[in-house]
């Protein structure tokens, strides 16, 4: 379970203060598939970064799986990211110098699994995204959709409770986007909680729960209102 209470995030630069999140309240339950929409600059990425422990917040309370995140130091947050969270990025963020096998290996090494366990997890997860046969390829030899599948395999390899995706289909054409979305749906069905930021209203509709961020505040969207929009 993910629980945010009155989270505020203020970015302080030399002369501007940006209030990116304002009294942000959200509870995400086990097994949810949450889509996050909202205008550009509204705070979606900020929310996702805080949820994924990539960024700290200015005030409020944040519990992840019952653990008070505010109590953790940098190293504690790193370990928690590694254990509980899988990240999928708009730009895939694969390591260009490593082949698919070793890309998926990266978080497993940080976890400290032994070689046998790592190999098993890598093969299992690359198979899950349909790329078992391409293990020796480097990212540049794959299409965007395939790269994003590798990134998903990498995110899933550590068996995270939460999969966070920031516009995972933003760099893909609609056909590839559909494939990635279907994959995420499968993963969700198998029990992983997903929070996905997207600009695509159709993809957002396929999530079981939809929220909107506007001006740093969160609101639930009901299906009816959204259908009308679509």
């Amino acid at each position: 379970m993910l629980e945010m209470k009155n989270i505020n995030k203020i970015f302080q630069t030399a002369d501007v203060q940006t209030h990116a999140l304002r009294d942000f309240n959200l509870t995400v339950n086990e097994g949810d598939f949450v889509s996050v929409t909202g205008p550009s600059g509204s705070g979606k990425t900020t929310f996702l970064n805080i949820a994924g422990l990539l960024e700290t917040y200015t005030s409020g309370d944040f519990y992840l799986d019952g653990q008070n995140v505010g109590m953790l130091n940098d190293s504690g947050r790193s370990k928690m990211r590694n254990q509980k969270i899988g990240f999928v990025f708009q730009g895939f963020n694969l390591i260009p110098d490593l082949n698919l096998f070793y890309n998926v290996d990266v978080p497993l090494r940080y976890r400290g699994f032994n070689a046998k366990e790592r190999k098993q997890r890598i093969e299992e997860n690359l198979a899950r995204v349909g790329l078992a046969s391409r293990m020796k390829h480097v990212p540049s030899q794959l299409s965007g959709g395939q790269q994003q599948r590798v990134a998903i395999a990498r995110a899933l390899a550590t068996d995270p409770r939460f999969l966070l995706a920031d516009e995972p289909t933003g760099n893909l054409d609609s056909e590839m986007a559909d494939g990635v979305m279907s994959l995420l749906e499968d993963i969700n069905k198998q029990g992983t909680t997903i929070i996905m930021v997207t600009h695509d209203p159709e993809l957002a509709l396929r999530a079981s729960r939809r929220i909107q961020v506007k001006d740093g505040r969160v609101s639930e969207l009901d299906i009816v209102a959204e259908k009308a929009l679509a």
Binding site: D74, S78, K79, R81, N82, N93, I95, Y110, T158
Partner: peptide, 16 residues
């Protein structure tokens, strides 16, 4: 830079 950020996101500690 981005790769390092990604590694951190995937769970690398500063020391790693």
């Amino acid at each position: 830079t981005k790769q390092i950020g990604t590694r951190r996101a995937l769970g690398a500690t500063q020391w790693q």
